[in-house]
Design a protein around this nucleic acid. Structure first.
Lengths: 216, 216
DNA sequence: TAGATTGTTAATCGATTAACAATC
DNA sequence: TAGATTGTTAATCGATTAACAATC
């Protein structure tokens, strides 16, 4: 087995990729770890180790070929060929995700939307019809869909997840406001906004202890 | 100065709080670290250390008083009294955030929405009027708003952030698809979906290496 | 060539986990 | 009392950073 990639490394790769895109559009052709390190406030050695996982060799004195590195990082993440995903939950959150500009950039395309609510199924979301959940298994298999984007209200999140498992979907990216239960045979990545808010809230609270907020 | 709280600890606190709410609704009155550890797959010692930062004492043999602990964790995060925030960017993402059920639960209330796009300002989003950006500074000061929720398209994200700084807003929770530039005198917490997607994409890709996905 | 940069091995740092005394 | 659990100190583990040889 190849060396396991650490999650912190994995989470930094998109930041490098974003910079690579930017620099490419500025006409750069090579980059060194120091460029990344300066732009992101990271240690250059860390950048070098992170990039190494993608298997793109650099050249001493020169650095990395920008094009080659960008392609290598994108390939490593599986962002080189467009992935197709189903959206499960077509409420306001689902609609926002369908319109989200960051997905297309990362080779992710939501090709169909489903919703258990009969009042929503049948509607159009971002120009696409929302289908009833009953259509999910057959379509998932026929279209070889391996990723589900879960955007259901918390009460329905676990049902949605189960439907994905039964449809043979391999991974779920969850935006439900409650973490769905772990399930056999499916990869779950949950975006927990409460965790992010906790970091922000605490920083704000510590700030207030030092310099109290304005009051009337 | 009090011991600095680590970010990993901070990010786990909402998970404990969610369990506390659940257990409280089930009629429990005391909890031990082992309960949390079992439910979350954590080490009991880690739970004990995490909870310790909130300053709620437990009793040997008994555990923690559930009510007292829930109140302590919420207070530590600043989630005990409802915080008021402004939404900057009232497109689909902004609309989803206004409707998001997780916020109210965490004592966060979006009290007004702003958008630089004249086609959007004037509309209603989640029953609230969207105001032009020009109204932001005066209202922020008058209402003592310290948190901005940034949901603008990437091209406008930095302008939106600057507007917050100028309005005296202390912290910004960013959902832009590109991380806004750091700015003097404002706390920024950026939710970077690409980082989360990177973790998921890579897991999916490694899975495929072991067991290739079905094809036609 | 000399200097800059990669790639890799060693040292440090911080977070997690283990051990254990104190206590109800 | 005995057993369970807290709170805290020590050990381990993994990620970050430093050092340095190889190289263009």
């Amino acid at each position: 087995m190849t060396t396991a990639i650490s999650v912190p490394t994995l989470r930094r790769l998109p930041l490098y990729l974003r910079l690579l895109d930017k620099w490419q559009s500025e006409g750069r052709t090579t980059v060194s770890c120091t460029h990344f390190a300066d732009a992101l406030g990271f240690d250059p050695t860390q950048v070098r180790k992170d990039l190494a996982v993608c298997g793109v060799p650099g050249r001493p004195k020169v650095g990395y070929d920008l094009r080659e590195l960008a392609a290598g990082v994108a390939r490593f993440l599986g962002w080189d060929n467009p992935g197709e995903a189903f959206l499960i939950g077509a409420g306001p959150l689902g609609a926002a995700l369908m319109a989200y500009e960051g997905f297309a950039e990362r080779g992710l395309s939501i090709v169909a939307a489903f919703d258990p609510d009969p009042a929503i199924a049948g509607n159009l979301v971002a120009g696409k019809p929302v289908l009833p959940m009953s259509k999910l298994p057959e379509l998932a298999r026929r279209m070889h869909i391996s990723l589900g984007v879960l955007a259901l209200p918390s009460a329905q999140a676990n049902d949605g997840l189960r439907a994905c498992v039964e449809a043979g979907i391999e991974a779920v990216w969850s935006f439900a406001s409650v973490r769905p239960d772990a399930a056999e045979g499916i990869i779950i990545e949950h975006v927990d906004l409460a965790q992010s808010l906790a970091v922000l809230s605490h920083r704000l609270a510590s700030q207030h202890k030092k310099r109290p907020p304005r009051t009337t």
